[in-house]
Amino acid sequence: MARNWIREPEAADELLELLGLSFVLEGCFLQASSDQWRWDLDPACTFSVKGIKMEIVEQKEFELGYHTDLLIMAEEEIQIELKDEAADLAPFDPTKKKKKKKVIIQDPAEDSVEQLAEKTENLSGHTLNAVSENLEPTFTGLKKKKKKQVQTDLLDDEPENADEDVDYPIGEDEEAEGIVLQQQKLPWEGTDRDYKYEELLGRVFHILRENNPELAGDRRRTVMRPPQVLREGTKKTVFVNFMDLCKSMHRQPEHVMTFLLAELGTSGSLDGQQRLVVKGRFAPKNFEGILRRYVNEYVICNGCKSPDTILSKENRLFFLRCEKCGSGRSVAQIKAGFVARVGRRKAGT
């Protein structure tokens, strides 16, 4: 397999790690189709709390029945599972679960859902198939949540190289330490120590990111299209995509227009095709600067910087309310200020 290294792995534990990873990746194929999530516990194939709760209840009942048989079990298994589950459910006997799991996790760059689905179907009869055996210790954290689930892991936007199959953020600490990462998933596994805040935080974000990426989503910048400006004659400027920009900002065109005209210090109006015609000669850059100021003042929420806000008028005052974080603030009124008289004076005045 050809690899594009930034740096060749040299140290012994790096090589060991590479070996392990290539072992995991063996037999994975690359396809052009995009990765997908499937949640098998729910008929709708979407993640739901109800689904997981039902699964847990089922599990508990099942395990209570067999409790006596299972008193003896591997020490590390208990620890792993209990700790993983501790966050969301009361402790229960987890050994039974292990048999049910059929998780295949593969690198997003290397695999596709179809393939995985196929694979799981083939293997569904077995309790532990080869692939999951490989992966099992590594991905215990994931498995708890998603039994019988096909996973192509990682968000697509994570540009990790293909050899870094272990995506759990916490896992990387161990890699650095050079411990055999296949054996341990979470840093606290197999030990009695308390969880560190960073580790728990990483875990929460990992779970959040894989279940609903938009919640943990990295802040995306608000992008606006550049204004398109035409010259009408020599003295007028037409702002072509004015309406589009207003819509993308969720603002009344009147409000944006008054602001633009006040800032430009000219007069103007909307024409038949909902374009803004402004008197005077202006470059697109000028509009851009003013729109930027408009967005900062009347669109962006000061608290969370999200552009998802509503401008409402209460008792002649404008208030901005954020839809994301719920904060509100008042905004200044648009004032044209002093406008000097330019052009020819009429004889009468």
Binding site: G265, T266, R281, G337, F338, V339, A340, V342, G343
Partner: peptide
Amino acid sequence: VHIRIQQRNGRKSLTTVQ
């Protein structure tokens, strides 16, 4: 203190300090 610009004919302009 508001400093504004106003366009006049051609490339002329006015600055007002209010």
